[in-house]
Each structure stands twice: as structure tokens, then as C-alpha cells.
């Protein structure tokens, strides 16, 4: 099979009955989906379950891809919705004990953000610190903050990814920022209050 086949050509072959061609699509997009899933799930087994579910859904619903938008966008929509379902189903497991951010951590955060080239260990530490804050958010607010603030996506694109209307995305973004501020107020050390 030539390696430079387009997504449309691969999907046409799968629709014609050669389902083994789906492996090529998995190979093309798995890294992207793993990065997306890791934004919402912390444990690796949960991340793998999410990505697997996305690909199984994609295969089952492949006939609904009409080809008027890139396959990648269609797949990302499935991924975002699957991640949102994951957040909602694990809502009860959220950590409700607020561990406060201490002065040392916030000082370190200042240095980390100011230094463009951080080493991998610092990045891991930053991720875990950011997770401590994001895990306190409700599923919808976490999804909005992630797409809007962390991934820097425009409101229109978020509406397309989530299936929510543009006004609803804006309302939810406002609420999400307010909730995040409230959480930081409870977690922040004295000097930020």
C-alpha cells in the first residue's frame, strides 16, 4: 500500500471492504489522540481506554464521515466528546480535598513560566501542579478551560468540537473562568490574596 494515500482514499478502501486499511489511520492519528486524552485523564490505563474507544467509535461511524471537512477534524470531535464523557463519568472520583499551593510552589511556577526552555522534569512537575487545579473544576468547565485557554482554540471551533452553540460556549467560558478563580482563591498562598 503506498504510504502517501490521503485519508479519503484510505476511507474509501475501508468502505469497499478492506477494513485492514484502518490501521494506517490509527498510525496517523494515535499520537495526536494520546496527547488529547492525556489532558483529561491522569492514569495511563485510562488514557489508553479513551484512545481505544475513540478509534472503535470512529470505525463504527466511518460511514457518517461525509468528506466535506477533513477527517482529522471529525476524529477530534469524537475525541473531545469521548473525553468529556470520561470526565463526566469520573466526576465522583474528583479530588475534593484542596491541597493548597505553597509559596515555594508559586515561586517555582513564576520561574518556570518566565523560563522558555524548561527541562523535562520541570515540565512533569508543572503538569502535575496544573492538574491539581484543573481537577477541581466541573467536567464542562475543565473542558472549556482546556480548549480555550490551554489549547488556545477560537470559540467557533470549540462550538464545533463540543456540539454546543457559540453563545453556550461563551457562557460556559465565563463560568469556567469564575470557577477557576474561586478554586485558586481557596488554594492560593497569602501573598496572592
Amino acid at each position: 500500500m503506498p504510504a502517501d494515500l490521503t485519508d479519503s482514499e484510505i476511507i474509501a478502501a475501508i468502505r469497499a471492504g478492506d477494513s485492514s486499511r484502518f490501521e494506517e489511520l490509527v498510525r496517523r492519528y494515535q499520537a495526536r489522540l494520546f496527547a488529547t486524552a492525556r489532558r483529561y485523564a491522569r492514569r495511563e490505563d485510562e488514557v489508553e481506554d479513551i484512545v481505544q474507544e475513540v478509534f472503535l467509535k470512529a470505525f463504527a461511524k466511518l460511514d457518517s464521515w461525509r468528506g466535506d471537512a477533513p477527517f482529522e477534524h471529525w476524529l477530534m470531535r469524537l475525541a473531545v466528546r469521548t473525553c468529556y464523557d470520561f470526565l463526566r463519568s469520573h466526576q465522583r472520583n474528583r479530588e475534593h480535598s484542596l491541597s493548597e499551593l505553597n509559596d515555594q510552589e508559586t515561586d517555582w511556577l513564576e520561574t518556570f513560566v518566565a523560563t522558555p526552555e524548561a527541562n523535562p522534569a520541570d515540565k512533569d512537575a508543572a503538569r502535575s501542579l496544573v492538574n491539581r487545579v484543573l481537577e477541581q473544576l466541573s467536567p464542562a468547565n475543565r473542558l472549556i478551560i482546556t480548549l480555550l485557554e490551554l489549547e488556545d482554540r477560537p470559540v467557533k471551533e470549540i462550538a464545533a468540537l463540543t456540539g454546543w452553540s457559540v453563545p453556550l460556549v461563551k457562557v460556559r467560558a465565563f463560568r469556567a473562568r469564575a470557577e477557576m478563580k474561586k478554586i485558586l482563591q481557596r488554594m492560593a498562598p497569602e501573598k496572592y490574596l
Partner: peptide, 14 residues
């Protein structure tokens, strides 16, 4: 700071 840190430390894609 939190948002800046999250942007600078995107998740791994391995």
C-alpha cells in the same frame, strides 16, 4: 501563571 505553565508543558504524545 497556571495557564502559562499548562501551555509550556503540553502533554506527551508518545
Amino acid at each position: 501563571l497556571v495557564i502559562g505553565a499548562a501551555r509550556q508543558a503540553p502533554p506527551r504524545d508518545d
